[in-house]
């Protein structure tokens, strides 16, 4: 299995290079380094020397992809793309255009992101599994029918409405929690309740409906009938046999997300003014800070690939028939 994991991680390298190349082309297709310098230096009193200096300072004074002045390998390596990409592979994110250390920013900002994402994720999954189990237990009755109707209705509502209504009711009308903001340490708790709650509620509809179909697929199989026939109660069958088998499809979706929790939620964080990685990304997009955008894209892709490997490993844990080779 270890050999398998190592091989998978090696596959990641060409993919990451591709990701970098893509973001790079997309960004520099319309944005020349001169434009970037002008945006950052401001429109007034900008001289060609200042632009040259800004570019040289940040390593943007080289050709983009191919340096025709150099020979051999140097013609590829002495370029903006190469110089800015190669350090990413050792997780050195370099500096943002305003001179801040991106790596330090990320390490600092991942905690608020995690503080929202992890509770939302764990409680959300547990609730979804429970609700789906209830629906499956009452299958064919009115509880099931109306439960499904309710979940479809809930998943038809945009996340924006959940957030706006949540803020309106909990903060503006009932004054239970602050509308937005963040604090350090335990005092952050009161700022976290609302986003976590909204995150859970908005996900219940889609989640429980999806998991219900997983259960129903299992419930009609022969081993369930056998278990019932030998006298086990239907609750026992549901929890011991069906749940374990339904875990396989559930895990497919869930485990792949876990690493991406680091990235935070763009919408949640900017709505609630939480200084996490999500709002960091939005700020960078608005300021056209290529260094940060590229770092976040790289991090996101890395975590995504990591999630795929994790999913494969988790299969072997829940389903002993699966072997990685």
């Amino acid at each position: 299995m270890i050999a398998y994991i190592i091989r998978r991680l090696f596959y990641a390298i060409p993919i990451l290079i591709g990701v970098n190349l893509l973001t790079f082309t997309l960004f520099f297709m319309v944005n020349s380094p001169d434009d970037m310098a002008r945006v950052h230096l401001g429109v007034k009193r900008v001289t060609p020397e200042a632009i040259e200096l800004w570019k040289a300072d940040r390593g943007y004074d080289k050709p983009l992809l191919y340096n025709s002045k150099e020979k051999g390998i140097r013609s590829l390596s002495n370029t903006i793309f190469f110089q800015h990409s190669v350090s990413l592979f050792v997780l050195d994110f370099g500096r943002a255009d305003d001179g801040r250390d991106i790596g330090r920013d990320i390490r600092q900002r991942m905690w608020p992101s995690l503080a929202i994402a992890v509770p939302t994720f764990i409680v959300g999954i547990l609730l979804n599994i429970t609700f789906a189990m209830l629906l499956a237990f009452f299958r064919g009755t009115y509880v099931d029918v109306w439960g499904v109707v309710l979940s479809v209705a809930m998943m038809s509502i945009s996340i924006m409405f959940y957030i706006i209504l949540g803020q309106l009711i909990m903060s503006k009308l009932w004054h239970l929690v602050p509308i937005s903001g963040y604090d350090t340490g335990l005092r952050a708790l009161k700022f976290l309740i609302l986003p976590v709650l909204i995150g859970i509620v908005s996900g219940i509809g889609a989640g429980s409906r999806l998991y219900r179909t997983f259960y129903l697929e299992e419930i009609n199989k022969d081993y369930v009938r056998t278990a019932r026939a030998k006298g086990l109660s239907s609750l026992q069958v549901l929890f011991k046999h069906v749940l374990r088998n339904a875990m396989v499809p559930i895990l497919t979706g869930v485990v792949a997300i876990i690493p991406l929790l680091f990235m935070g939620s763009l919408v949640m964080e900017s709505f609630f003014g939480i200084p996490g990685l999500g709002s960091y990304t939005i700020d960078a997009i608005n300021q056209q800070d290529f260094a940060i955008v590229r770092a976040m894209v790289f991090l996101g892709s890395l975590l995504y690939i990591f999630g795929l490997v994790l999913t494969d490993i988790s299969y072997t844990l829940v389903d002993p028939r699966v072997r990685l080779e």
């Binding site: 993919i15 973001t23 997309l26 763009l266 976040m296 894209v297 892709s301």
Partner: peptide, 8 residues
């Protein structure tokens, strides 16, 4: 698909 879609 490994690029975060919102960012792209």
């Amino acid at each position: 698909s490994s690029i975060p879609s919102v960012l792209l």
